[in-house]
Nucleic acid binder design. Structure first.
Lengths: 96, 96
DNA sequence: CTTTCATATGAATGTATATTCATATGATAT
DNA sequence: ATATCATATGAATATACATTCATATGAAAG
């Protein structure tokens, strides 16, 4: 099946969303872009843990980054991230 | 934070999508409803493995089921499943 | 009621992965 | 150039979880 690769990639993509820390990072970035240390403070986690997860998010192309003076600023890569989170939110809240 | 619970639930929801077997099951059910043994055959996996994963999908309210004679037929619970898969698909294919 | 067939379940195992700790990298500013 | 600050990385550990195997459940048909 040629579709098998796609389905595997889809699973891998959602796996990235499927972690509380990464979801919290993405959620933080919904409003504004943030540097690594700001995210770490906001989520009360170590810089290392955040950095590791940011790499996962970057590999999945869910976030991008750029240097800003001394710090490195992360931001959401595109609107699919927002859409996917929004759909998930709806599924959770629209339970009858 | 009251949002923390929600973000945790969101992560848990996406975790369900974040497995190749479960994505393949959901994908199979996009077109038509299927009984457990049909899914197992289709995906070339054991009945037990499929049954375990169907339980996860059911708990997340992504699928529903009903008895149909001797077999138990599973189907997608609602359109959020389709939307979420569609958004993920777009993210994967719209890479520049 | 009993047998049979489809499905569900439980325990066990192997594998994936999130976090920590220590340290490396690398740009900036002095 | 060097010191410093922010970030990245690697190895190690602990935990989560997918599959397997054996077996239980439970409806349906005879």
């Amino acid at each position: 099946m040629p579709e098998d690769k796609l389905l595997c990639d889809l699973g891998d993509l959602f796996k990235v969303f499927g972690d509380t820390t990464r979801i919290r990072i993405l959620y933080s970035l919904l409003e504004t872009e943030l540097c690594v240390c700001a995210i770490a403070e906001l989520l009360c986690m170590t810089q290392s843990a955040i950095s590791h997860q940011l790499r996962v998010l970057k590999n999945a192309k869910l976030v991008g980054n750029r240097r800003e003076g001394k710090t490195i600023v992360y931001f959401l890569a595109d609107d699919h991230v927002r859409s996917i989170i929004a759909q998930g939110y709806e599924h959770l809240t629209e339970e009858k």
